[in-house]
Amino acid sequence: MTVLLEVQGLHKHFGGVQAVEACSFTAAEGQITGLIGPNGAGKSTAIDLISGFKIPDAGKVRFEGREVQGKTPHVISRMGLIRTFQSPREWPGLSVLENLILACFEPRRERFWRSLRGPSRAEKEKANAQLVEARAILDEFGLFHLRNERAGNLSGGQKRLLEFARMRMAKPRLVILDEPMGGVNPVLGERMAAAVLGFVTAGTSVVIVEHNLPFIERVTDQVVVMAEGRVIAEAPFDQLRGNPAVVDAYLGELPTYDDAES
């Protein structure tokens, strides 16, 4: 089992609030790692620090053995680490299909002079292949009929699906999903679970932040628990239940979820 992402002693404060404090954990290749914790635990901030959207006060982030802390978001993204945001961030004015096409970053074709000269034969073929793939992915997520729709007009749940579809299109080495189930109805939840598992099949490892614990139990191999900016536990989900620190952080919420589900 190789370590893909290694976070070491991250710190970040906002004014007087210590949002992330000495946060360390790892995510392994080919696995789904859950990142849970009560509201305000610092999960989203940790993601921002890892993906370069915020600059840590201290600490190291290694992705595939290379240090990435302090690098800009696009550099980290090009290395194969793509994250989503807590609220869906589609490109609202573009069509759903364009959203998917744009998920594939192609440094050469996006250059100004290349664009001016028009695509070469090989590029045309590649664009075609991409289009075919995009349609297939949209079909898989049940968005095919909406492919020409303005992405901003999709419903909340559809936007979440679109984010998954974009990730599938981008094929990164690691995705970090920030609450992908937020505001999604339970029926769609099934599809989400399948999609998350589908990433691993497609060769993408996953770090997932989620408040829905049954969902976390179902899909994750390993779970990192944060509270008040610190990592308080790092273990497979079934070993967490007996952990007093975790139970304490969730104010006894954890043992009762079985009732809630049935």
């Binding site: 993204s77 989503t84 945001f85 961030r89």
Partner: peptide, 29 residues
């Protein structure tokens, strides 16, 4: 017109529509 439909044009649109998402997908804003 040529730039408009090109990847360059599309990438620019993605900056206009949502910069953070564009950066998350590798664009140097």
């Amino acid at each position: 017109t040529r730039l408009n439909g090109s990847r360059f044009g599309l990438a620019l649109r993605s900056l206009r529509e949502d910069e953070r998402a564009a950066a998350a997908f590798g664009r140097d804003i």
